[in-house]
Every structure is written in C-alpha cells, then in structure tokens.
C-alpha cells in the first residue's frame, strides 16, 4: 500500500484535510436516529433526569418530612411508592436521590472515560519506556488503600460534592486505561495505522482520529459498566461520611437500606432498584446504539 503513494500525495497537511470527507458524527447521528431502542432509551433518560432535577418544584412530598406514626407502609394513594422506616415518601426520596446518583454516575463515568481513554491510548500507542512508566503508575494507584485515601481527601478538603467526583474518578479510570491500552497496542500493529505512521501523520492526530474511534466500541461497553459501580460506590462513600448526607438520599443508599429489610418492606428495595435498573438498561441500549452508530467499518455496508 505504502509503495503506491506518489510524491504529490506525500504531504501530511494535504492528507489530513483530505481524509475528513463526510463528517463521522453526522453519519453517526443519522444512524442513531434510526435505532428506535436507543432513541427511546435516550428520551427516557432525559425525562427521568428532568424529573429528578426538577424534584423541588414537583407536587410531591418533601423528601425529609417524617411521619413516625405510620413508619414503613406499602404503596398507597397518598404515597405512591410507599414510605420508609421513618414514614418518608419513597417516591420523593427516589427522585431527589436520582439527582446525586445520575450526576455521580454520569459525571464520574465521564471523568474516568476521559482520563482512562487518553491515558491508555497514549501509553499503548507509544509503548516502550513511556508505556512502562505509565502502567507502573497505574499499578501504584491500584494498590493504594482507597478508604484511607478518601478519609484523607475529606480531612484535607472538607466535604465537597466535587471531591466526590475526584475520589471516584481517581479509582474508576484505571481499568479503563488498561483496557484501552490493550486494544491500542493491538491496533498499533495493524496495517492502516502503520501506514498512517509511515505517512508521517502527527501522533496526536493518529491517536485521536484513528485509534480512539477504533476502540470506541469496547470503551462504550466498559463505560456503561462503570455507571452502576460508580453509583453504588457513592453509597459506600456516604458511609465514610463523604457522598450524600442524611436526610438526603441517593439510589445507592436507598438500595442498601432496602436490601436490609427486603423481607419486611420489599417496596423499599424494589422501587429504588427498579429506577436504578431501568436507567442502566437505557444507558446500555443507548450505549449499544452509539457503538453501532459510530462503527466506522459497519458504515461501509
């Protein structure tokens, strides 16, 4: 392939403009719109997100208002999804809890996606010494005691919702980086990348335009797997005094509370878990849709 490149073509600047062609993103958007499941999922997530974030102005009970006389009651006309052990409206607690869980789930995943993909792609693409050093740093970060790290963060910076994203992002990107690096290392040896390198395209451009799109499928899958673990991690962090503070709730804390009384008050587990699951399913379908839409090769069909 490389031997057929003429002198005229051998101009990196021209090549870069030439390969833009039809917009990748425009095609992708077109394909995504045709995927009904993905579209419904996207709409669902948007609606749910809007509901959660507008919870304060919705005509629902306040999330912290207790009714000690009734305690935990099953769903009724007054409390659609029942109440918790302090007699608080579960629907309200789920919607309010969705704010923090969706925010953490999406933001922390985005953070881990961003760091993990760039880090892994760089490490895998360049290889050699750089790869060694970068991967040993990942090993070190894997090993440090997470609980102590979180406690230190809290002591040094106080409780702060942005720190939550940092704490979670700091652990969640590591596996993403390892996976992306593994993929990139394989791709790096494929003809079209070798050719691009031989053509003298800039490294940054190769990584961003050729490597990352080609690992996107796996990245999206792993990202949708990160969302649930991040949402549940938030519940553990609020156990450490980070995360949400009572009486505010989050899906993670609601599910773990519900799990403790699943026999006596099943609705306390079922409804939060339902919101959690349906959201994850939607994200998953959306993820699959995105993957198909962005698949460079499938588009040739």
């Amino acid at each position: 392939m490389a031997d057929r490149i003429t002198a005229e073509q051998f101009d990196p600047q021209r090549l870069e403009t030439a390969e833009e062609g039809t917009s990748l993103w425009k095609d992708a958007w077109y394909r995504l719109k045709k995927n009904k499941l993905a579209l419904i999922s996207a709409i669902f997530i948007l609606v749910l997100g809007t509901l959660c974030f507008s919870a304060p102005i919705l005509p629902i009970q306040p999330y912290e208002a207790q009714n000690l006389a009734i305690r935990a009651t099953p769903p009724s006309a007054e409390y659609w999804l029942g109440t918790d052990v302090l007699g608080r409206d579960l629907l309200s607690r789920i919607l309010y809890g969705g704010r923090i869980s969706l925010a953490v789930g999406l933001c922390a995943t985005a953070v881990s996606l961003f760091i993990g993909v760039l880090y892994g792609a760089t490490s895998g693409f360049f290889g050699g010494k750089l790869d060694s050093v970068m991967m040993r740093i990942v090993d070190i970060l894997y090993s440090l005691p997470f609980i102590i790290f979180v406690i230190l963060l809290m002591v040094l910076f106080g409780r702060n919702i942005y720190l939550l994203f940092i704490a979670i992002g700091a652990v969640e990107w590591l596996t993403m980086a390892r996976i992306v690096r593994g993929q990139v290392r394989g791709l790096r040896r494929q003809e079209f990348i070798e050719a691009a390198i031989a053509l003298g395209l800039r490294r940054r451009r190769i990584i961003l335009r050729h490597m990352i799109p080609n690992v996107l499928g796996v990245v999206i899958v792993y990202a949708t797997l990160t969302v649930p673990s991040v949402i549940l991690l938030e519940a553990f962090l609020s156990f450490l005094g980070f995360g949400v503070q009572p009486p505010m709730s989050s899906w993670g804390t609601l599910i773990s509370e519900g799990a403790k009384s699943m026999e006596e008050h099943p609705w306390m587990l079922v409804f939060p878990a339902l919101f959690f699951s349906v959201t994850l399913f939607s994200l998953n379908f959306l993820g699959d849709g995105l993957r198909d839409a962005l698949d460079v090769r499938a588009s040739k069909d």
Binding site: L225, P228, I255, A259, A273
Partner: peptide, 13 residues
C-alpha cells in the same frame, strides 16, 4: 444486565 443491576449486597441475601 440484571446481574449488573443487582449488587452483591442484594443478590447475596
């Protein structure tokens, strides 16, 4: 997906 949605502290008990 169901496996992913049910954390160990739910599936175990």
């Amino acid at each position: 997906m169901i496996g992913i949605c049910l954390p160990t502290f739910v599936i175990g008990p």
